[in-house]
Nucleic acid binder design. Structure first.
Length: 289
DNA sequence: CACAGCTCCTGGCAGC
DNA sequence: TGCTGCCAGGAGCTGT
């Protein structure tokens, strides 16, 4: 599952090759890949536009166009965006059945969107609608405004910590893999009620979120099966996961066998010893100010 | 407000 | 070998 580190790695690789390229045409092979407009409208609106930059909001990749419009790419589960410098060369024929959209670009290049499960989406945001796009999105965990106090205020609710961290409208970019890794690193059980976390817990959680995401970006993302960078390269972070996918294996810290449970309909792995389900500590007061 | 359940999808795999 | 059926899950939605 591509999460913030994978999308950021994708953005960086794309940023190096895409700006300055003009979109000549777009072919959509699975109509529902594009939204909220039809493939025909998409082609009509972006043909002739030049990509001037890239951005990212949580797990959403943003391609900025020269008329103020933008394309948004959400990889969901299995999406892949691949830049091909020479479109006259043959594509990988084994992947052709999963090709959902192709952008013909200037300089004989192309941008391919592959997506096995068809959950991924490419959105069109008209000129002037960027504010609207960025509105109701959660805070960027690697941004300056992600402070301990800010996180603390987001956690002032009677809700389990894991589903809360997965909620993109609160914190943007964490998915199943990095939430489990983050909670393990912070020593917090995934079912702890968020408002029961002590100030100390929140500080460790805050540091863990930043550290886990930053390190994953340094290792160019986690490739379990499908994820690739914009140039087709796999990441290396899958070799550094402590809990995700390691149910019944020994905890790297204490050797206790890791346990799997289902939280928010998602497979969840944790160490019962390092992440005890105790509700110590009184509920915190709202940060004064 | 919290959350269970459903939808969208298909490859991989366990079980028979 | 070949089939069936279940599982994985991000996000938007509805219902309780």
């Amino acid at each position: 599952m591509p999460e913030l580190p994978e999308v950021e790695t994708l953005r960086r690789t794309i940023q190096a090759v895409l700006p300055g390229r003009t979109i000549l045409a777009v072919q959509v092979l699975w109509a529902r890949t594009v939204e909220p407009i039809t493939p025909t409208e998409m082609d009509a609106r972006i043909a002739g536009r030049t990509v001037i930059g890239t951005d990212r909001a949580g797990k959403l990749l943003i391609l900025e166009l020269d008329d103020g419009a933008a394309l948004t790419v959400h990889l969901r589960m299995t999406g892949e965006l691949l830049f091909r410098p020479d479109r006259t060369k043959n594509r990988d024929s084994t992947r052709e059945p999963y090709l959902r959209a192709v952008f013909d670009l200037s300089g004989n290049s192309e941008l391919c969107f592959y997506d096995t499960r068809k959950f991924g989406r490419i959105g069109y945001v008209p000129p002037g609608n960027r504010e609207e796009l960025m509105a109701r999105r959660g805070i960027e965990p690697l941004g300056k405004s992600f402070t301990i106090d800010r996180l603390s205020s987001l956690l002032m609710r009677k809700r389990s910590i894991k589903p809360l961290l997965l909620d993109q409208s609160l914190v943007a970019g964490l998915g199943n893999i990095y939430v489990d890794e983050t909670l393990f690193r912070a020593g917090i059980h995934p079912l702890r009620i968020a408002s029961s976390l002590t100030r100390d817990d929140v500080e460790r959680l805050h540091g863990s979120i930043i550290a886990v995401l930053s390190e994953a970006i340094e290792h160019r993302g986690t490739t379990l099966r499908d994820y690739r960078s914009g140039l087709g390269d796999a990441g290396e972070n899958q070799h550094r996961l402590h809990v995700y996918g390691r149910a019944n294996a020994p905890c790297v810290t204490c050797g206790t066998l890791l346990e799997r449970l289902v939280v928010a309909q998602r497979g969840t792995v944790h160490c019962p010893r390092c992440q005890p389900l105790t509700q110590l500590g009184r509920p915190r007061q709202s940060p004064s100010r």
